[in-house]
Design a protein around this nucleic acid. Structure first.
Lengths: 134, 134
DNA sequence: GGCGGATGCGGGTATATACACCTATTCATG
DNA sequence: CATGAATAGGTGTATATACCCGCATCCGCC
């Protein structure tokens, strides 16, 4: 009976499995799906602060700071000082932009194979439900 | 446009957020939702091996072994030898059973507040979609 | 009975994630 | 302007997660 099933457990399991699917597709580009997502968020938000980026991604600030550090060491992200002496801006380097562009077709293939298996209507429904959860 | 959104990112974000919701509810019981789920799986499967438990949960074997170790140190799980000298059985201790029982009402409250916000039809739809992804 | 593949696990290493706490800076307000 | 609250980050610690590799054991087959 559905009532006895933990929705959170289902979500976590699905997130793990789907992450593996995308990670497999991204193999060879030197980034995993979490990093791919982080890079794309930075590209979209254009020099966000650590906090605003964390907020946008629904991540703890400290988590995001550490994730950024990994990509900074790879030369894909850089940190610059903002107006405020407190905050720092996350910047997508040229190398970072190139890496995202290079990986995007593989990401798209992974996404497509998933949507093929789901159908577009169910994909939309899934995304809608996930957004409602957040 | 939905096509440009990463389903995996959505899933991961939702999993994080919902996990936080359940973790909050489980605060005070000394376990988080991942551990709660692990304990319940052990209870349901009744002395599974590490591998079969990992398989059932969609987790890597080594991950599961480490997660078990944490709960073993807390006295909630124990490891026994199976028929085979290779495999080990994961056992829910009396303390572990008691902990799950104690935490279950809090888990249920968290689940209920989530379902209240979602509606039962959408809950069923969500679970169905998540299972289809796995 | 021995040998090669299969199976079950643990450990090394790395990233992802969160919370609690600390520091530095900024801001609001008296 | 001084002081306390609010804000931005970093660090310490702990768990979650995965992949790779190595070791022990088992099993099928000759």
């Amino acid at each position: 009976m559905l009532t006895s099933e933990c929705i959170c457990t289902h979500l976590r399991r699905a997130a793990r499995g789907v992450s593996r699917h995308y990670d497999e597709a991204l193999e060879g580009f030197g980034i995993n799906v979490a990093q791919f997502s982080l890079l794309r968020h930075v590209r979209r938000l254009d020099q966000p602060s650590i906090s605003s980026l964390a907020e946008a991604m629904g991540l703890d600030r400290s988590t995001l700071g550490r994730n950024v550090k990994v990509l900074e060491a790879e030369g894909l992200l850089a940190l610059a000082e903002g107006n405020d002496l407190r905050n720092r801006l996350v910047i997508l380097t040229e190398q970072g932009k190139a890496r995202v562009l290079a990986a995007e077709p593989a990401w798209e293939a992974a996404q497509r194979s998933l949507v093929d298996n789901l159908g577009e209507a169910q994909r939309d429904e899934l995304v809608r439900l996930l957004e409602q959860l957040a």
